[in-house]
Design a protein around this nucleic acid. Structure first.
Lengths: 344, 344
DNA sequence: ACATTTTGTGCAAACGTGTGCACAATCTAA
DNA sequence: TTAGATTGTGCACACGTTTGCACAAAATGT
């Protein structure tokens, strides 16, 4: 027994006008006499009438729905970002439908169904759903927004944090502290952010690397999360002869905070090394945990609120924009206590 | 220029049948000859036809959309729970629309709009949106599922973890370790879970409390999160004269893991106290961080997957179920290294 | 062979809205 | 006063589906 909704016909009858008039009373730019509009809205309110979005979507071929795909909620930065996105979208009257990209096959299925809901746009935030999915949406004329992801899609809107400045700052910070043996910790499963940061880090060090002043080592981890960082630190020092200890890196730049925290915990709790006395560590993102007393991680902050804000604005601008947008969000060095002058 | 979708009329024309027939070919229980059905589906596939959910929803007054409201993504347990929910729902072909309950006023607005999308049901997971919202949905004949929340709504489906058994186990664990001065850390902003756990904890200790064998102190914190726990520990020892130190509690039960971690960090990093040597701490939830080497928190695990599974099943069963469901999910004691025998 | 049931398909109405077009009413300008 | 412009409203169709009803064809029973 479904509840009978009050429709525009009801309020039309009540107000002694046609359904068309009722409809037009809710559109700002329609030619309706002030008097009629006021009366109709009055009655509508009184009846608790609300326009049926489903019916409206059918005719306008547009909805207030937005697809939001993310590879699980494992990465803490992804979580705060999504949180901000939800709030901003909600404020704009948009409703995000969350899709999990962990299972690619599953995802492709869901994402096709999603297209049937006339979503206004789709935001792809992390992980790696095959970019063919994005292409599929482009083909259906549904705008695609890529957040911190590689842009193989020319037609997609791109919003990225400034990995170049960030990585350059990381390099400078470690160099200024006197570190000579540097390392970059990154997942072997290439992600856009990680690879990009690594490349810019190396680029910032290029001159000194060429002159032999400093060294740079790539430390691979299995996954770009806490466990990955943890294991990477273990692996790094596992089969290293004591005589070789003096050659291990002292300035560590991690692809993101989560990796950095895992790396630090392994150093401290498993390997008996101190941060920052023995090794300096820099992360990226500034996730909430990074600032807490257990870690006090020096890191590059990318502001999730700014990204969410830019995304919201991007969606708003899409109807009037002709070419896909390219937006770069600034990052900021947050100096805490995980970097100290090199001991040797 | 919107992309022209292929409709059932297209495939009907192509197959030389009527739209009705096409529609029926996709419903399992319709009387359609095997031959026709196969041919139609063949052609539909070939054309890439997909039923328009919007149009279907309009006529069936049902959609594959599900409302999922949560108070931000701050609590780590809420995050893993939501993650599981998303995956399970996605697997069932349902699409969750996420709503943020941080701003109550904003929420009421969004949630009303949501009703217009004919959501199949609404899942309320944490935080405290006024229960009138739930009532509003009940009134609209939209099923409401409350997860780990108080049930002022008789008509709502209730899924709760077993706070009673959990708190009883916590009490037993601390008592068995020889602790006499116990405490419960909970937010002053009452949440259902926190209050419930506190009440059952006290209940489990009732006999020994009455006999004066042990003592129980309530430690309030401003919020039921990391910061709250952190500050609570600071407050507890702030204006306590050294002579009084011996009377402070040694067995601490926290309303949830997040509070427990904050509490522990304050003890260790700000107050110079050791866990578990000086104080024993038990949490609730078993969030991912709790198991990591920095904490090794002994805690009561409530399995997010089990809750999500129960929720999914609940939604599935709703059409055929007559009375609202009441489901309790078991919890399990996870023994790690934050509880030790009482020193004195 | 005929009556009756079963099976398969089409017609048309409904869901609730937006919007082009027509047209009446009011207003403006000479 | 009258022709034309402007304003406000209604009619009717469209969006893409589901589904009750009608009905032809096939199958069944006697």
């Amino acid at each position: 027994m479904t509840h009978k909704n009050i429709t525009s016909a009801d309020v039309a009858r009540m107000a002694g006008v046609s359904r068309s008039t009722v409809s037009r009373c809710f559109k700002a730019d329609s030619r309706i006499s002030k008097k009629t509009r006021e009366r109709v809205i009055e009655i509508a309110d009184q009846l608790g009438y609300q326009v049926n979005k489903i019916a409206r979507s059918m005719i306008t071929r547009q909805s207030d729905l937005v697809g939001l795909v993310s590879a699980g909620l494992h990465d803490p930065f992804a979580v705060v970002l999504i949180n901000q996105l939800i709030q901003k979208l909600q404020k704009m009257g948009l409703h995000p439908i969350l899709l999990d990209a962990s299972n690619t096959q599953q995802l492709e299925l869901s994402i096709k169904k999603l297209a049937q809901y006339q979503v206004r746009s789709i935001i792809i935030t992390s992980g790696s759903p095959s970019s063919s999915i994005g292409a599929e949406f482009i083909r259906l004329n549904i705008p695609v927004i890529l957040l911190n992801r590689a842009g193989q899609l020319d037609a997609a809107h791109l919003i990225n944090c400034d990995n170049k400045t960030g990585s350059t700052l990381a390099a400078k910070t470690l160099l200024d502290a006197g570190h000579r043996r540097l390392a970059f910790v990154n997942s072997i499963n290439s992600t856009y952010s990680g690879n990009s940061r690594g490349a810019f880090f190396e680029q910032a060090l290029a001159l000194k690397l060429a002159s032999g002043e400093i060294s740079l080592q790539n430390i691979p981890c299995r996954s770009s999360d806490y466990q990955g960082g943890f294991q990477a630190a273990l692996d790094l020092f596992a089969n290293r002869p004591p005589s070789d200890q003096s050659r291990s890196p002292t300035g560590i730049y991690c692809a993101n905070d989560n990796v950095a925290l895992g790396f630090m915990d392994a150093l401290r709790h498993e390997l008996g090394l101190r941060v920052p006395e023995d090794l300096s560590v820099i992360g990226f993102d500034d996730i909430p945990l990074a600032g807490q007393p257990a870690y006090r991680l020096t890191t590059l902050r990318q502001c999730p609120e700014a990204i969410a804000e830019a995304t919201a604005k991007c969606i708003q601008d899409i109807p009037s924009s002709t070419s896909p947008q390219r937006i770069t969000i600034p990052v900021k060095l947050i100096t805490r206590h995980s970097v100290a002058p090199a001991a040797n």
